[in-house]
Design a protein around this nucleic acid. Sequence first.
RNA 1: GGGCCGUUGGUGCAGCCCGGAGUGCACGUCUCCCUGUCACGGAGAAGGUCACGGGUUCAAAUCCCGUACGGCCCGCCA
Length: 604
Amino acid sequence: MLRTHTCGELDALAKGTDVTLAGWVGSRRDHGGLIFIDLRDRYGITQVVFHPDKNPKAYDIANKARPEHVLLVRGTVLKRPDEMVNEKIPTGTIEVEVMSAEILSPAKTPPFEIEAETEPEKEVNEERRMQYRYLDLRRSRMKRNMAARNAAVFSFRSVLQAEKFLEIETPLLTKSTPEGARDYLVPSRQHPGMFYSLPQSPQQYKQLLMVGGIDRYFQVAKCLRDEDTRGDRQAEFTQLDIELSFVERDDVLNLVERLIRTCITTLSEKGFIKKRLLYQQFPRIPYDEVMLKYGVDKPDLRFGMEIYDITETVRGCGFSVFTDAISLGGVVRALCIGGGVSRLTRSAIDELTELVRKYGAKGLAFIKVKEKRNDGSGFENESPILKYLDDDVVQRIITQLQATSGDIIFFGADARGIVQESLGQLRAELGKRLDLIDPDVLAPAFVIDFPLFEPDRENGHYAPMHHMFTMPRSEDLALLDTDPHRVKSWQYDTVMNGYEIGGGSIRIHRKDIQEKIFERIGFSEERRAMFTHMLEAFEYGAPPHGGIALGIDRLLMILLGEPSIREVIAFPKTGDGRDLTVGAPNNVEQSQLKELGLKIHVKP
RNA sequence: GGGCCGUUGGUGCAGCCCGGAGUGCACGUCUCCCUGUCACGGAGAAGGUCACGGGUUCAAAUCCCGUACGGCCCGCCA
């Protein structure tokens, strides 16, 4: 070893010890005689001191040292006098008086400052950070995030190991199958014209592992989907993939709760996070309920402000926006903003109207609830729509939403999907805008009782809500033939703070049910044939099984309070799938294409 | 595939709306001074094709069009 200690471990107990440290030059403070250098590595910072008269050669090195040079120093640990202790760093009670030093590696002036991040407004341009990710990783934010990620994954492994799970790797070069996201394809050299697909998830393999008697499996699995990137979405991401045999839904959910609790406890104990859980137990909320109350299947439960269905309240009310929506089979729903009258300006309401338009709403009706000044009874409300509504209808709405003076009630009236999504997005936006969210709270929950198929698909086909291997509820099996949209499944999602962080299900392990699902999805014989291996496996004694996949990147992003999953990924990709650090994707040599039997046709 | 925002010395910003000499702020870098600092301090200096291409104009960082790159969002993401 070139070093005897790290830059984070020395304290007063090491007083008098001769040590060798290696690290990067941080702050260098030159007093004309005496030079102090903050030597930094992954573990911390140690102040090293150079005296011109005691060790002139070492002092000479210190004079040449510049930020980010890699420096090796040999010296003695000295306890600092009380008045010189630096309480900001753990090693602040000591310093190392350098006897000899060596610059192991010089450094150009870095494109951004490594240690100047104490001022939060001094954010470095993310493009620059990604281009020089190896420098960005030296900064405390990324250092913390990488260490926290390691701790999280380690905590998962220790829970799963203790519960007899086997960690098994499944192939990356696999088979492209229809449905779901776009596959990344890899051309086969040995079979020209044929392709491997990179896995969107290890789904089929882990089910085959269950048939193989590996009754408890997990994997920290890279998953790849050739789709556009978002702040909470990368084409390449990591899941904690889990599958168990002989379990029911709640067994899986209980396991997930143990995993997430242990992870949070571990990160808290190690000082990475200071967050508290909103609930003693993770709530388990039916899909229909979250869609009604929150308008999304990944609700942010850190604040209330639930959506109410007022379809029955306003039926026949005479306001055509409401009644037309209802007569076309739609719904009318409403959201009450406590104190909204004083908290939302006219222009804010205009912006919110623009927001709901993005999701298909035609407008955003509202009522400002105000008590009558004079006799104190009734209300002196304000709204462009009041003239279309009878007082008693307004009063019933106010009563149903438990609105009081100073509140604003927003309305959505349209097809159910549009109302759900637009009011759901409105609720989420208001949560942020009105500062209703405590950033130190974690609100995990399970969403259960999903329908098996996505609602209201236009083309007459039924598309799986989760995936085609999800087990329908046994009591709903008969409905597969008569009314597939009413079939509920054993799908469940894990959500936290408005993000989906995991999804899973009890799987189909019976050939006849799987074939029935293929039929309902409208699979051709060709497509069905792509899954022969699954159907055949189910003929050889497939155990009942189920599992889940937790998005590790997203979970870490939320726990660490980061705005994007790029902050918890060592080498993330940009919005259009580039890796700016190495410059991928890139052109390849003609000879490589020839070996693969490929010709590139680029648009003129 | 579409919408919005951004691109100004090495870094982060301001300047742009309302065109008039590359103007400013903070950090960094370099030189000199300084033997107890710790985001050291002091004095001074260097450093810019205002992303790129085109247009309007007597004159463009500033207005217009296009392109590239980055971000956010819609679509997409079983």
